[in-house]
Design a protein around this nucleic acid. Sequence first.
DNA 1: GTACGATAGTCATACGTATGACTATCGTCG
DNA 2: CGACGATAGTCATACGTATGACTATCGTAC
Lengths: 334, 334
Amino acid sequence: MPADTPPAPPTSKDVAAAAGVSQSTVSMVLSGKWPGRVSARTAQKVRDTAERLGYRPNPAARNLRLGRTRTIMLVVPTITAPFFASVYIGAARVAAEHGFSLVVFTWPLDLDGPFDGPQEAIDGMLASSMAEASLSGMRRPVPLVMLDSDPDGGAPTVNFDIEGAMRDLTEHLFALGHRRIGHLAADIDVWTFQCRAAALEARVPDVVTERAAISITDGFEAAVRLLSRPDRPTALVCDDDTLAVGAHKAAQALGLDVPGDVAITGFDDVILAEALELTTVRLPAEQLGAQAMLGLLDLLNGRTPPRPVLPAELVIRRSTSPSAALTTAAEPAD
Amino acid sequence: MPADTPPAPPTSKDVAAAAGVSQSTVSMVLSGKWPGRVSARTAQKVRDTAERLGYRPNPAARNLRLGRTRTIMLVVPTITAPFFASVYIGAARVAAEHGFSLVVFTWPLDLDGPFDGPQEAIDGMLASSMAEASLSGMRRPVPLVMLDSDPDGGAPTVNFDIEGAMRDLTEHLFALGHRRIGHLAADIDVWTFQCRAAALEARVPDVVTERAAISITDGFEAAVRLLSRPDRPTALVCDDDTLAVGAHKAAQALGLDVPGDVAITGFDDVILAEALELTTVRLPAEQLGAQAMLGLLDLLNGRTPPRPVLPAELVIRRSTSPSAALTTAAEPAD
DNA sequence: GTACGATAGTCATACGTATGACTATCGTCG
DNA sequence: CGACGATAGTCATACGTATGACTATCGTAC
């Protein structure tokens, strides 16, 4: 009596036998290439039996034969941050639309060693600039698109228009009368944050900067330092919404009203910013992932991908509200 | 002149040739099984040349040969929610420790159709209870562990001690003098939320309930309804931190002080709760993912997995602060 | 009637690995 | 000295797919 193992899934050979044709024919029909090699009658018969048997091609066999996996790896420091999760969503959607799947590889920021992820099983990589330093250890060149990274760095990139965002942001603050601006900077030495610092310093002559790890508590401490200065800034520009939350708490702890005594802005527009009604810069993270995936598909098809620069939108909320500033903190400015 | 294609990665055959042995020997040495079939001398020679050539086994060939992929799929409604991202982290860590990789499949809540993810390429699944309804469409039985789902539902589960958490939560609120409690419930019909409602109603006789989709704005509206009742609750228990944020905003909008006029609690303890200083129930999401992955490994090895129930911890913060309640809202209760 | 091009398929093989079946060599024991 | 068990390998094959090389059939044109 045969053991009742779950029946093995049908192979193309099973379909061939059931349809009365050869395995090659099944393969040719289902691949869709080979325009005139199979008659319409036979093709239909094959498709019907494949459907009836519930045939699905074995991915391992296909990968082996074709020498590719249709799998892309996304390398990010963490997937827990909503920003990177959104990047994932955008990239995964485009990947799925093109028959690719996307795996996440989290490469913590505190690991500076060379990359040693599963390189062999993938056709290409999307890598956050925050993982850039680790990419040196690649054993063989893998098609690569960098996210929010130095456009002159060699690999194709997809970027945000940080300068435009910073222009809108500073003009907004200037219009509210802010002149002394503090910069609560992320203490990670990657391109995107360097870019934010440069863009801010280019527009605000006397910016004062404190650096902090991206967390509420570290942002809190750095903001306390900024807000305790004799020449206390009237606005804090934070590199990240999480830091802005810390800054908000710091202001409260020091008895300062937001936005009356100090305006606060974040970056990214994750749900935290909505919850605390923070003015922030909305970075279209899903678009970043989607565009990067499209660029990678270009690369895999031998085309040269574009290097898009995605617009970032200033989202004005209560933490820089002018009315609050005027009614709470000072007389009308003019 | 040969085109300068990137050199193909070395195969076990290349290693065999370089070491002067057969391909079988290479395979036997590197697999580590086959204790006495190869002499120590030869084995070392094979390992050395493999190292020298930078040989890595081709995963597709291995998968084809062994009929498995060492890939697990995690099915969740969204990876953007920090809770599920943490589940992913925990599961991925355990998976990596055992040589498995983890892919994410997001199965949106609004899709009630049968599951049609890439079933063939995986050895097993972890599925959130929020995707449970979709699992009927599986073509062939796949080893499965359910997350935070009905323990009597057939598949192995990993759960939180919701009843214990609700006991701690209600006792905390009772101790603060709260008697009329509103329940801001998630309007998703899955086990975990049914469980929360049941646990709450078992302990609080006259709970009033409003349901809302899990978002700040929907939570806001439902909370407004709750707080506008003639018999306005003095405490709102929310099924989710996101809902609690909406409730917080609703209280503000109605001119109610938190926690003076109304106490608010959330669920999950994501960063939102920290940012708004919400009392909440900390669900160990990473542990959930890790334990589920361990259970799935048991299942794959023919063992019967345990059905752990993970403790949930009450995290008391400002939104139920007793001192604020006493000083702001009312006279001392006794 | 045969040569030929098109049509409609089949055949054989390769991808790289893992493993059951087989073999050669050697030391030892009866 | 022949048999035999252990040791140390090799050989051959299968996994399921895709595809270049090959073949059979037929209608048509010379």
